[in-house]
Amino acid sequence: MTETLLDVKDVVVEYPLKGFRREPFKALKGVSLDIRPGETVGLVGESGSGKTTLGRAVLGLAPVTGGSIKYRGEEISKASRAKRKELSHEIQVVFQDPYTSLNPSMTIEQILTEPLTVRKVERQTANKRVADLLDQVRLPQGAAHRLPREFSGGQRQRVAIARALALDPKLIVCDEPVSALDLSTQARVMELFIEIQERTGVAYLFVSHDLAVVRHLSHRVAVMYHGEIVEWGDGEQVTGAPEHPYTQRLFMAAPIPDPDRQAKHRADRIRLLELQNQQDLQAGAA
């Protein structure tokens, strides 16, 4: 049995709402999952399901009001700033939007060395590290002295991945990292994610609304709905033969890129919805 890298148990995240004595908004209502070293855990859900919030909670960017998040057995949900700084070595992030996740006024080199300089890495070592990182994400060395706006979305996302790799983390939270990219760019960036994982053994918490992306990348998959995980298990199982009604609906909703199969898929979806409606009615009557 391998050790667990990240253990999330019954996590609750609440955002206070404006107004006196109003019930806070519960973004997460007791969510549990775990990630092993070198594993990709996919987190699927629609907007507002809380999948991004869970990623932010792991990063310490969302207020955890209940439950625990343990990294290698150590509680991190209430970590201090100093502890967070230490953790930045272990847990990193790649955000969705490659256009706003890089500071437009800093060169690629400045962006990549920033996490290093915080740790007082010598300039020379840092420069060497930048060259190495650009190599790792397959960007040419000349990229170092350019500004983010000179790059396409896919290239920017490579820079963001390089920044996440700068400190050799053991876990990267990927928040919809390929959703803003074109189809062919998306495929190449996903291959890069897999390749980096196979080489470095980093684990991913991969948040996405795209079932195909999650299926392609994840060893295990969790499906979120209204702040809860409704289905959680082996990737092939969850994406191939979902059991929860919501997961079934979700998977039937994605159109298949083939006109004839999609026509059948569409009919199946309508049948499924009718069946579930009937079941709901019966459950209500019983």
Partner: peptide, 11 residues
């Protein structure tokens, strides 16, 4: 902005 979040995650 996400890059400020990223800087916070970087410690």
């Amino acid at each position: 902005e996400l890059y400020v979040d990223a800087a916070r995650v970087s410690g």
